[in-house]
């Protein structure tokens, strides 16, 4: 009943300004609506990463464990991290393709630290749907994703298949010649 009364009185066709009693009705509806919306924020935000998950420390990694031409996979923030010690031939193959038509154009030099071209550090999660690409697979000798067939080159750049982007390079710094800090 009240609803129809409010509706009738505030009908703009009548050209009347809402009177005080209508204002109280409107406010009575608006206040709980605002309250419900505010309450929804904690209810939704609780699903985001919790404080202890966010506090996941950065990791240090000893590069001397990785032989030339090999890759070591470590877990970082629940995802695999590839640390690959590339051979000269693999680096040359990556640099040669710097200016061929790439889906996500980037030069090889942009993806490694200066003077450390042999060390490639990547998040080992396919940019298509997150599977872990296998080392050394595919036509470019980089990685091959077993799920939907994305092919990455020896710089971790996407060359074939449905993935839209290159394998991501995380933030990392060299602490010494044989030690990197990731994150």
């Amino acid at each position: 009943m009240a609803d129809t009364a409010v509706g009738a009185k505030t009908d703009p066709a009548h050209g009347e300004a809402p009177i005080r009693r209508d204002f109280i009705y409107i406010a009575t509806i608006a206040v709980p609506a605002g309250g419900a919306a505010s309450l929804a924020i904690p209810f939704i935000d609780q699903m985001n990463p919790s404080a202890d998950t966010l506090a996941l420390a950065s990791i240090e990694f000893d590069l001397s464990k990785v032989a030339v031409g090999q890759q070591v996979t470590v877990k970082w923030r629940g995802k695999p991290l590839f640390v690959r010690n590339r051979t000269a031939a693999e680096i040359a193959a990556a640099v040669k393709d710097d200016h061929s038509s790439l889906k996500d154009p980037q030069t090889d030099a942009d993806r490694v630290k200066p003077g450390k071209a042999n060390w490639l550090v990547l998040i080992g999660s396919c940019t298509h749907l997150g599977c872990v690409p296998t080392f050394g697979g595919g036509a470019y000798g980089g990685w091959f994703c077993p799920c939907h067939g994305s092919v990455y080159d020896t710089s971790g750049r996407i060359r074939q298949g449905p993935a839209p982007k290159n394998l991501a390079v995380p933030d990392y710094t060299f602490l010494s010649d044989t030690k990197v800090k990731i994150g």
Binding site: M47, P49, S50, T53, L56, R77, G78, G130
Partner: peptide, 16 residues
């Protein structure tokens, strides 16, 4: 990230 409750599928994802 909101669905996972983290940076990857992990325990919080399983629980929800």
């Amino acid at each position: 990230t909101w669905l996972w409750g983290g940076f990857a599928v992990d325990s919080p994802t399983l629980n929800r």
